[in-house]
Write a protein that binds this DNA or RNA. Structure first.
Lengths: 348, 348
DNA sequence: TGGGCGGATTTAAACGATTAAATTTGTCCG
DNA sequence: CGGACAAATTTAATCGTTTAAATCCGCCCA
């Protein structure tokens, strides 16, 4: 690679002048400027970002840690982050923690070592370990770049956070099912040690209570986020002869898994059993019947996180902010027989 | 950040010794070693990867440029790359060219400036500009890191490439439709200036000829990759009163768009019109009827590209290799009435 | 005893940029 | 003509590592 030194030599000026031309931070006379620009052009010079990063201590890169970047849910989050980032001249480094807590730590350290200017973290830390985790974040000697927490408010006293009110919308779904005459709602959750899974479950539970329905442990199945877990949960319930007239899944995958087994076993949806999901991933519009769900603003979550991170980078000492985004429930044919819905064919 | 110098001071040795302990490249006596490790531990020291990168000229990072990282097709490609990369201690920097040629160039330069150790490139360069492009790749003064070309063989004389025989499988699909008694096959392509789109079209065309069917320009619609383009292409054909008994789309999105409009207009699939796609994205199993398609090994494409890139990094002077991967067609109910198929619920 | 040898350690020079501080150049005015 | 002041340019230090070369040190053996 041709370096600034060689450009300087070629243009007959000092490296400092070349640097000044490039960064534009100090004034340079017009004809020297042209001479330097010429040399740069001729020699095909490109500034070495690694060297610049070392000197300036800024890499214009931010790190993004998500539980599983392969999941559809996070795609739009990534796009949101990406768009705001590139508008502001930042590059992003996307990493997957695979829902593993130790990996998460490792990645954070790696990002620190890479001198990223900031981190967006969708943590998979469990509720009970959050405090210890937050303490270790600050580290003894280590200075941390600003961190914005996505989906979790567990650290909101020290970290800015971008969240939504999962309990609220989960409750709205439950209410919608109850309003449709359902009383025995089988709830299929993801891993309950994760904060927003817990919140969704609480929303369901509290709504039942509000309606005078005693939550029945038999109707509560917890699993993973995968559709198999929805499939298996419902299969289990059927094999145990549990009676239910609705399945409320805490995400769309599980809802579709549930739909699959119910169709296989000859149930009519929604006549015999209603089904609801959460997240509004596009496949929920493709299956038939389409799935009632909550439209989670994942694009906006990513964008908001990035905007907030930029703000934290600019103002490291400002107090953390907690952004709570709005969502809305979308009623489709899996809960209401004559609901219409369109295939969502955008962006995949 | 605490630097090596401070660790050295704390441990009472020179920075070189600390470095030796960390890299393990030169021998260090056992008790000095322990002392240094202790200091590192106590001071919470982490090596600065930017500085190391500057000195060693290796960043252990590779760049990946894809036309559109938000598209489902590329998700598994990314996973494939990622898994091989992390097994080998590499990080990846994923970028989207948005199918724009200038952006692609810009990103390549940016990656060069960031001193990545290699690049995996799924180029969107058009067939006729390929040569000029390849020339510019080498650059006048600039030394390029090794590049592996994904999906395109246009530069295979200088770059290693990972491809599949698109014409072959596209032809097999056409043959399958013909074997099913279809004679008037409406072809919906993506942008034809892209090499593999052209190949898929050629496969279709040559198969028609082989079967004594004259390709009919009226039955050829070209569009984007989006499902709307499938929808619109079929709508156009219908409005023009073009008669056809099958739609062969060059990707699954377009096929599903076609399915949508045909259902809206009351056609029975596959009785009145058969539909086929390409890529085997999971949504093609979700719609009903499920779409006959070609299972493109995108995970393996990513993995193979990364393996090949590692090889190129190790042996920069070895001649480029051209890997051609296998695929297979999958027959589903959109072309054969009683074909069975399962929802693909894995990995989304 | 002293020279030679090899392993452990340190010195010091990079890597390629940025940026204070010092220096040069140029301009204007008394 | 000379001095003052501002603008342009250069010098040189620095960011945090790695690494070739130099040095040190202990040990063995003639």
């Amino acid at each position: 690679m041709v370096s600034m030194k060689e450009v300087a030599l070629h243009a007959g000026v000092s490296v400092a002048t070349v640097s000044n031309v490039i960064t534009g931070k100090r004034s340079v006379s017009e004809n020297v400027r042209r001479k330097v620009l010429d040399s740069i052009e001729q020699m095909n010079y490109q500034v070495n970002l690694v060297a610049r990063g070392l000197k300036t201590q800024r890499t214009n890169t931010i790190g993004v840690i998500l539980p599983d970047i392969t999941k559809l849910f996070f795609q739009k989050v990534i796009i949101g982050i990406l768009e705001v980032a590139s508008l502001n001249g930042y590059r992003i480094n996307i990493l997957s923690s695979s829902y593993d807590h130790d990996t998460e730590r490792l990645l954070i350290n790696m990002l620190k070592a890479s001198c990223v200017d900031g981190i967006i973290l969708d943590s998979c830390v469990s509720i009970d370990r959050a405090r210890a985790w937050a303490d270790s974040l600050e580290g003894k000697g280590g200075v941390m770049p600003p961190v914005v927490s996505l989906e979790s408010r567990l650290f909101s006293d020290r970290l800015s956070s971008i969240t939504m009110d999962n309990a609220l919308y989960s409750g709205q779904i439950t209410q919608h099912l109850i309003d449709g005459g359902r009383r025995k709602i089988l709830y299929v959750s993801g891993p309950l040690h994760i904060e927003h899974e817990r919140a969704r479950f609480d929303g369901y539970r509290n709504c039942l209570l509000k309606n005078g329905i005693g939550p029945d442990p038999v109707l509560q199945k917890s699993g993973t986020y995968l559709s198999e877990s929805g499939y298996n949960a419902v299969m289990e319930a059927l094999n145990e002869n549990v009676r239910f007239d609705a399945v409320q899944a805490s995400n769309d995958q599980a809802a579709i898994g549930a739909l699959k087994i119910l169709k296989e076993r000859g149930f009519r949806v929604p006549d015999d059993v209603a089904i609801s999901g959460f997240d509004n991933l596009f496949p929920s519009t493709l299956v038939s019947p389409a799935i009632t769900t909550v439209d989670v603003p994942n694009y906006e979550m990513g964008a908001a996180a990035m905007r907030e991170l930029l703000d934290r980078i600019e103002h490291p000492d400002a107090p953390p902010k907690a952004h709570v985004l709005d969502a809305r429930i979308i009623v489709r044919a899996s809960t209401v027989k004559d609901a219409t819905s369109q295939w969502d064919l955008t962006n995949w």
